[in-house]
């Protein structure tokens, strides 16, 4: 464990909590892409099946349980409890355009052709593009609530910190996982546009609005 990975995990946890609080406090999931939340739930479910097969540490197990629990709680909020506030008309990204290539690639490029390993690889590739429906929705509505931008900031920051974690682990432990690193790079690059808007607008107290 190193400082980048720990702060990365905490940033990820913060993002997940911020989203849940935003929906709970405002009793609304306006501006939230349900499709991205479905993809994240699929990412956690397919990646954390090893909860049933191996124990790494209390931290590892408890964080996995928290992530999965929050992911499904968010889906419950978006598609059941606060369904009336879900903006389905703007959440129109075709997720099959993500699932098919990612599914195919996880069979072609993986570390080991075993079910758990292919599911892990699938979850890594899927996570790198899972935010696209959310970013697409913001580009369609042309704006995002400030609390939603904080959610996206911490969500993007987490994988950027993981990139430093992998540099650290390569240097100190000789460990590196090319699949996770390449997918993590893609994932972080997809946020660059948002990071620019977040830093130049939201941090200056302005609302995040895109030239529609």
């Amino acid at each position: 464990m190193n400082v980048f990975r720990l702060t990365g995990d905490l940033s990820h946890l913060a993002a997940i909590i911020i989203l849940l609080l935003k929906i709970w406090k405002t009793r609304s999931c306006a501006g939230i892409s349900g499709k991205s939340q479905i993809l994240f739930a699929v990412v956690f479910t397919s990646r954390y099946l090893d909860l049933l097969t191996s124990f790494i540490s209390l931290y590892n197990t408890s964080m996995k349980v928290i992530y999965i629990g929050c992911a499904y709680a968010t889906l419950y909020f978006v598609y059941m409890k606060f369904k009336a506030t879900y903006d389905g008309n703007h959440d129109t990204f075709r997720v099959e355009f993500l699932l098919v290539p990612v599914g195919g690639l996880s069979f072609l490029v993986n570390h080991d052709f075993s079910p758990l390993e292919i599911l892990w690889t699938f979850s890594i590739y899927l996570e790198s593009v899972a935010i696209l429906p959310q970013l697409f929705m913001i580009s369609k509505t042309g704006e995002a609530e400030t609390i939603t931008t904080h959610y996206l900031f911490f969500l993007g920051l987490y994988r950027a910190l993981y990139l430093f974690n992998w540099i650290w682990r390569f240097y100190f432990e000789g460990f590196f996982d090319m699949i996770a690193i390449v997918a993590g790079l893609v994932q972080t690059i997809l946020y660059c546009d948002f990071f620019y808007l977040y830093i130049t607008k939201v941090l200056k107290g302005k609302k995040l609005s895109l030239p529609a």
Binding site: R5, S114, L116
Partner: peptide, 10 residues
């Protein structure tokens, strides 16, 4: 990979 098929990161 620590042990084949085991990933220690979240």
């Amino acid at each position: 990979l620590l042990v084949l098929g085991e990933h220690d990161e979240l």
